[in-house]
Design a protein around this nucleic acid. Structure first.
Lengths: 197, 197
DNA sequence: TACAATTTTGAACAGGCTGTTCAGTTTTAC
DNA sequence: GTAAAACTGAACAGCCTGTTCAAAATTGTA
């Protein structure tokens, strides 16, 4: 039984890999089940033993990604238990995010591009926003000082973050997560101290 | 001849309207040419007299939108010729953007949602970024003070902006463009003066 | 090794959508 | 009224989908 699951997983992984490789060259809509099967060297019918359809396949890939985001953050966040200032904690969260992106960059590069599926950036941003919200709620001062609706602030800051990520991925991950965090902080500082764009 | 074009445009508009209406309920991938033709009450073959395929249709809608963004900004920006401070000019650009979004909200709501086509938010953001870049280049101090690559700053700020827009559209345009601009400025101020998130 | 359970294969099938063709009809402008 | 332009209806080959089923291959276990 245990190995059957192994085998089951192996074929699923084969399908997912072929699919993702194919997405690098072709947009989602243009890829057929036949294409995937051919590249994975399996029978077309076998695909349907594992997935309902193309959308189900992508959905499962997305879900795996979101699950990984959760565990990755929990791992890194719980590593240091020292009390940090609000700013330090935000910085630590930023590094955690960027290192997650680096780790999942092959998949994210595709899912966020125009070869992926519409709305992925919204779903991804929401997953992000949820983590940020939890972090912000720890700080009691925050909500008192914030005058705009929290939802708007979250959309603003997580979208900005996602913007950096997209640029980063587009530039071929030419920086480390630490450098990206520094860059993020520089921009915040620039807005704070420099010209108010 | 002139009216032929008229008629030609009328059918195209009929197709576009039916298509956009349909996109409110069904995702792009699920819509067939037959569906569009049926709703537009035209022959399926007529569709192909105007568009190459479904993608061509959406592309033309997008292009019209981007063209409108250009004219809309040029109009509003050239209205007042008084000399403004950098901050005042940024604010004016923000109002212009938000009023454009309001004007094109029916289409944008769909194109930015998961019913649209993958990558639209990137294309839209790029169009935005181009306008912001032109505005920023006027200010000589800006590039001197900015220490991070301009591309990253642009991605950051335009994505943040787009985040506000998405939230705004999602909330059913419950605020005026002026109120959204105030909200935008409040968030910037909050980052500047309040807690450094 | 032999066996049984599980998984995969190959082939076939109906059904739907695509994009094109073409002769005939309708609409439009002058 | 006429000629050009636009649209219609019907048909078509081609491709992809999702399902079925018996046969074959793979796997773990006795």
């Amino acid at each position: 039984m245990s190995i059957y699951v192994e085998k089951n997983r192996r074929t699923k992984r084969l399908i997912q890999d072929s699919f993702l490789q194919m997405l690098e060259n072709k947009p989602f809509e243009a890829i057929t089940i036949g294409d995937i099967a051919k590249r994975a060297k399996i029978n077309r019918g076998t695909f349907y033993l594992h997935y309902k359809d193309k959308f189900d396949l992508l959905e499962q890939i997305e879900q795996k990604l979101f699950a990984d985001l959760g565990t990755h953050i929990d791992q890194l966040q719980s590593r240091y238990t020292a009390t940090l200032t609000f700013e330090e904690e935000q910085e630590r969260l930023a590094v955690t995010f960027f290192s997650f992106i680096e780790r999942q960059s092959p998949v994210l590069k595709i899912l966020l591009s125009d070869h992926g599926r519409a709305g992925f950036h919204l779903r991804f941003r929401d997953a992000f926003a949820e983590k940020v919200r939890l972090n912000l709620e720890k700080n009691k001062d925050f909500n008192a000082k914030l005058k705009v609706p929290l939802e708007y602030f979250l959309s603003f800051i997580t979208s900005a973050f996602l913007g950096l990520i997209e640029q980063w991925l587009q530039d071929g991950l030419d920086q480390t997560p630490q450098e990206m965090t520094a860059l993020y902080i520089d921009i915040i500082s620039f807005i704070r101290d420099g010209n108010g764009a």
